[in-house]
Design a protein around this nucleic acid. Structure first.
Lengths: 214, 214
DNA sequence: TAGATTGTTAATCGATTAACAATC
DNA sequence: TAGATTGTTAATCGATTAACAATC
């Protein structure tokens, strides 16, 4: 029955963050309300798609006017669980890991990276973008004491599964995985796999067909 | 008719890179052939989906045996246009830009970042991960002289559209956009928008429903 | 009021999954 | 040979798009 709460197609969920962005922009431009059409125009999407998506935010719009921007933002954030910020650990402070540590937009996305971990002893005790780097050994204890549930995995590919196992063992319930195409985890652990190459593949194929057409 | 060449659903294209990864792994483990089922097992996907996807690679498999790993890799790479490596410029050498400059896996994905550009004069002439950083003013000339067609856009959000316009003006035909949720471009320019928040949104929603179930 | 926009139900489209004959 | 796997056609499923009444 809680299955019923899940709903909203995943493609819809993926689009929510950009709607939030656009709402922010429209607000900055001085608007108080925004219609599905307004949002669609900015993103060059179809109004009907945005309208259908927004229905999941459970916010009432006014015919002819649209939605109150603040209310709609709140509804979207609430749907995504981004009202209260969750703490996260970042594991693997290499190039990508450091970049993510330096990204200050996560707070807006309900995520607060509280510390980093790395196997490299040279990084121990250092700060990267203001975040303390701990040795891997400290992880289980800190997960426990700080009740952190989310980890961002940016270790080298070959270490990914092993470190993921450690994270799960330590009690992490959500892994945002940039390290490998797939990671094994028990059913009660959520793994979100990111693969930077997917987007590049799409770009490559589109470019090839575009160049063919000219 | 070149429209016919385009085919392969975009979701299929997005999955190709991970298939390549798995093939590499299976090869490293000493295998010469791999079946759709083998790949599916590693990625915990359905064999029928992998089989259907692989059909687009135009490589003949042998019943009971599967595919020759090298042949299949070649077929997938060829489909993606990753046989010949394309040069690319990276624009915006901040945290994320620097991380991408340091990622040495792009060559395998048919991409070679030849140089970076940044508006910050302090970076001018420096090298980041071995790549030279040029001031923005040099971009048009270098795009022209080096015949670069692809740009990776990692500038701050507010500058995204303006810089994209400059890139297009300079002759760039493909923009891999990490800077803003959407960028305006003429029809003959391909823009691939990446939004790191999309994956986080999915993770958040899955985590929330998972926690509800327990 | 007139008409743009919402909210919702129905139609369409495309991707995933199933089924199964061919075959190594 | 027996049976696992390919290649392909058909069935299903789910997301996108269309249609339209309600309404501010």
């Amino acid at each position: 029955m809680s299955k019923e709460m899940t709903v909203a197609p995943l493609p819809t969920v993926r689009r929510f963050p950009s709607y939030l962005r656009v709402l922010e922009q429209l607000k900055a431009e001085g608007n108080v309300t925004a219609s599905a059409t307004d949002i669609a125009n900015v993103l060059k999407q179809k109004p009907i798609q945005v309208r259908k998506d927004l229905a999941y935010a459970n916010v009432a719009g006014k015919p002819k006017v649209g939605f109150d921007i603040d209310e709609l933002s709140k509804g979207l954030r609430s749907f995504l669980g981004w009202e209260k910020v969750s703490d996260a650990f970042l594991v693997g402070a290499g190039a990508l890991g450091s970049a993510l540590l330096g990204y200050d937009g996560f707070n807006e996305y309900g995520l607060n990276i509280v510390a980093a971990f790395d196997a490299n002893p040279g990084l121990e005790g250092q700060k990267i973008h203001g975040k303390q780097v701990f040795p891997m050994e400290k992880l289980p204890d800190l997960v426990n004491r700080m009740k952190v549930k989310i980890a961002i995995l940016t270790v080298p590919r070959d270490a990914a599964q092993e470190i993921a196992d450690q994270l799960i063992e330590a009690g992490i319930k959500g892994i945002w995985n940039f390290a490998a195409p797939y990671i094994n985890a028990p059913d009660d652990v959520v793994v979100q796999n990111e693969n930077i190459a997917s987007g590049l593949a799409v770009l490559s194929v589109k470019l090839a067909t575009e160049l063919d057409n000219t």
